[in-house]
Design a protein around this nucleic acid. Structure first.
Lengths: 215, 215, 215, 215
DNA sequence: AATGAATGAGAATTCATTCAT
DNA sequence: GATGAATGAATTCTCATTCAT
């Protein structure tokens, strides 16, 4: 893997780095990879166009850096959720995780938007690797939850593990999409719902899962 | 609503229409709305650039026509599934529906790809309306299944209907995505799975649902 | 000179001819020669595009026909003015002529617009000939008025004839332009003036001429 | 008023600026706004197509810049004429002004051509404003001449001021058109006349005016 | 005679990338 | 290291003209 962020960028004052990252993040989130305009990024971060090419090899380089930045934020957040819910029972952990997801998207909507863009755009550079990184991460998270739930006897022992993991992953991902993709969810109307209604729906969903999965 | 397909196109020999639709469908499915190139479409359908504009008002017009074409195919398919499974019990109907979905995507992968592109691209023309059309349709499908399941006493009476519908919709949509979006599903690996494995996974998933929802 | 109107057009029912002429006239008057769109003409006259080419050799042919149509209307009108004012004195004839011009433009604004377009567009086909036809006509009109005025002793005998003709031509043309070209005339504001004000200005102008030219 | 010339253009070496201005001026003067081709401009100024868009926002921006450039040249010239003839009597000033006009057009024929194009093309961007700028300027010039002529008692006191101004404006404008618009003037044939003949005609015209307007 | 589909050159504009200063 | 001007290929769309039906 050749270098895509150049050391020049790393040596930049943090404030400048942040400005550039914010601009690029916003543009990629809004338009997707191909459609994102470097012109827009440099204009809104107040740097010269040539400078962008001092910091990154090319458009791909910018994108990969932004992606790295984003995923490590996700990772840090999820690790923290995992740790702070260590002691809770399986279904409580699920609930806390889902609420944490909702909160994360509320605070970093652009990061989630980029993930969604990558998901369905075949032409994003290195899409397979990037996607694998995210999906693997999510899968492992749910696997570990399910494994612990089984060990503690909180969920039925006869479950086919992978399918259960799939189910959790699917429901959670879709729930999050429903909260932030306009016009997507017509069943619960989550994209327009106030926080307290979302929390209520989280509880309902977890209850439903409990009825299906609890031992 | 102004006209976007011109009569010229409708009067074309069917073979030519199909070639053009195929080319446009392929391009939109591959690249999304903005990134799709009319140049590519005309090249691969073997017509002159100007001709495209005899057939459609503009790029948006091509897109909307393709979308209409796609959604009416989906609708016809789903209606047929609904009718042929009229007599079956709730969970069997679910299974049949999901299998039909898998089959539809196998036969029309590009249509599903376009739907996914619309879903997450804020800049698709008339996205709200288009999306509403699709999502409403799906929601009603599941609602009617759930309603009938309740009436027949096949599923638990204490279910919060909307959440159950949401759950079905989410699981099915995600299952379908898993079968056709490369690198998306790392849990079951459905995107690379042979038909018989997919059928097996369908059964497992339906079983899981049965355990959670059956009365 | 090769044929540009084809006999096909001449054989058309008059109503159809008129519709086509009206549409072409409107389009050329609005946009000028190059910028005028045959598409627009056929759309607004309700005929097929191919038919236009049955009637005229090409765009140039349409234009030349329209021009001929227009100039013969002008000619007929001016001849009539000349005849009906035969007996009046020089300055009365001037006044009547100018008022007739104002009236003509009020009734056929598009014809005057086409003339103005030709005047300053080097790329109008056959511009030299067309322009000569119009200008010669106007010049002769004023020359004959001046000649008669001299013969009758109504205007000073020491006038350099050509310059006087030039002066009349210039004033009249500009006065007409002032009444119909928006934003052109900021001195008298004739483009927005009601008929009675225009008539008043005509009188003033003729008075001024009388003071300068009368014997 | 949004920016239309970009600073990039202003920072260019003067020689390059001039080449581009010359090319654009020539093209607009020849074809008018709509029909002028940016392709032609860049080809004849030897720059890349994309560069034009570094210099100007869009075609309108090029045009407005050229117009500004042109009108300020006109203004400077006329101001100078006014100042250097301060002491002369009314009719001498008229003569000097007209001669200066003739000379200006001889040296900058394209600028006058652009003015004429704007005059009669309804679709020129910002035509009302542009036209107002030019016409107001001309009107004020003649008004101030007439006013001074009246104050000094060089012209008749009973003249209706606006009509006199109109007359001067009309005659001068038309005289200038006659010298540079081919085939326009068939009375005096000024478009083909040698300088000394034009000067002679100027004298004749001024004499005629003197006879009509002098006190 | 009437039609209208087919064509392709040309229009304005955008954009990632390079490179001299 | 920072700059921003230069580039040219790509984009969508228009239009006069031809020609088979």
């Amino acid at each position: 893997m050749t270098q895509t962020v150049l050391p020049t960028f790393i040596n930049l004052p943090l404030a400048k780095q942040e400005k550039i990252v914010a601009a690029a993040l916003a543009e990629f989130a809004d338009k997707g990879y191909q459609q994102a305009s470097i012109n827009v990024m440099v204009a809104s971060s107040g740097i010269a166009k040539g400078s962008m090419y001092q910091y990154f090899k090319d458009k791909k380089g910018i994108f990969l850096y932004i992606f790295d930045f984003a995923i490590s934020l996700v990772r840090r957040t999820l690790v923290q959720v995992k740790e702070t819910t260590q002691e809770a029972d399986f279904f409580t952990r699920l609930e806390k995780s889902l609420l944490a997801g909702v909160e994360f998207i509320r605070q970093h909507p652009r990061i989630y938007a980029i993930y969604l863009k990558i998901l369905f755009d075949q032409h994003v550079p290195q899409r397979p690797q990037l996607l694998k990184a995210v999906r693997q991460f999510a899968a492992e998270y749910f696997q570990s939850l399910v494994r612990q739930g089984l060990e503690r006897g909180e969920i039925r022992a006869d479950l086919p593990g992978p399918v259960a993991t799939f189910l959790l992953d699917a429901l959670f991902d879709r729930f999050l999409q429903a909260t932030c993709v306009p016009f997507f969810d017509v069943t619960l109307g989550l994209d327009q719902a106030p926080p307290e209604e979302i929390e209520h729906r989280v509880k309902e969903l977890i209850d439903l899962l409990r009825q299906g999965l609890a031992s």
